[in-house]
Design a protein around this nucleic acid. Sequence first.
DNA 1: GTCTATATAGCGATAGAC
DNA 2: GTCTATCGCTATATAGAC
Lengths: 207, 207
Amino acid sequence: MAKVSFREQVLKVREDAIVASVNRLLAEKGFDLMTVDEVAADVGIAKASLYRHFASKEELAAAAMVRVLTLAQAFMATLPATEPTPLGRLKAVARWTMQLQLAGEMPSLPSQNSSLRTTLMGHETYLTRLNEVSEQLGEWIVQAQQQGSLDDSLPPELVLYTLFARACDPVLPVLKATGQYSDERIIELLLQTCFGGLNGAPGPTGT
Amino acid sequence: MAKVSFREQVLKVREDAIVASVNRLLAEKGFDLMTVDEVAADVGIAKASLYRHFASKEELAAAAMVRVLTLAQAFMATLPATEPTPLGRLKAVARWTMQLQLAGEMPSLPSQNSSLRTTLMGHETYLTRLNEVSEQLGEWIVQAQQQGSLDDSLPPELVLYTLFARACDPVLPVLKATGQYSDERIIELLLQTCFGGLNGAPGPTGT
DNA sequence: GTCTATATAGCGATAGAC
DNA sequence: GTCTATCGCTATATAGAC
């Protein structure tokens, strides 16, 4: 295992550079508009060389998703030390995803592209990472509901899906485009609408 | 003006059929994956005939958006008779958009496709309709905030964008795909998370 | 393993007959 | 105004030299 380490490390560095480019381009243009030629040009290699590392455009996107999920896992692992409450950790994760989006590093995949979904649903590493992240979040969600800091009338999976959806909420780029708000203010506003809702927390709920 | 009415009415019926097909296909596959060949096949005419009515694929999508916005306007015009409060009207609109999505008739446009955005930003009818709908919603938003039924610390435009975003929220199809919830339940859950937030209304806000 | 050059295919749009 | 047939372009993916 240590024998081929040098060549393999060089390879890994190259592939990391590729995935980083893919990640940025996915965030900037989305999967459908991103072309493999662009990726190759951005990395500075020929397209054919790219296909030596990844079998298809879909595999490139999957690698970028794995990268982001791994980053999320690393961030979540630090939270028990800084955030004492489950709700605090969930909000910290939501804030982290929004910061990623503001930084132009949140890959955006169309929910409808079937060839891409097929690849993702057959991609073991992606599924594993997604599962691990979901498990950890689900744990915190249930704990927050038990503490009464999250609405326990909501199915935990709905809360999970909502957090995933807010990670790529189109409201964020629209707010950003108005130029009226600082990045910090955008994040605070979106956290407010996500967790507190539009009604406002202490006010009336009904009607 | 009355002279050509018959031929023009025939034309209009044909075009309505085209736009209805486009609307359904946009909801089903999204703009990027929808092909003009499919539209022609769905309507039952040749592609060249389609291009006699609409200049481009982007114009087709714009027509579908105008259709939906017009339907929304018609629905909103009925609300003062049935919904006494501004918040009630906003919730009714949100519910209506979710029903449209559940019915498979909410066209989904990518927020990133630039050629499409260019066409939309130059499409007078679309811009007018969009403006009218936004104006009416904005009015109700401000009223609801004044009554204390919507959080008045949120910029009204943020509330507006949020309502637009929830109209095509990806959480809805995901919930639907689990098969665990009735359509009515899905709508209630999403209204709850949108207006009441994840925290739950009477509970603690901070942390 | 990286390159240049090319195969292959799908799609938006149009020509031209009727 | 509708059709069939086709153009022209772009993008994924691959062949083959080095």
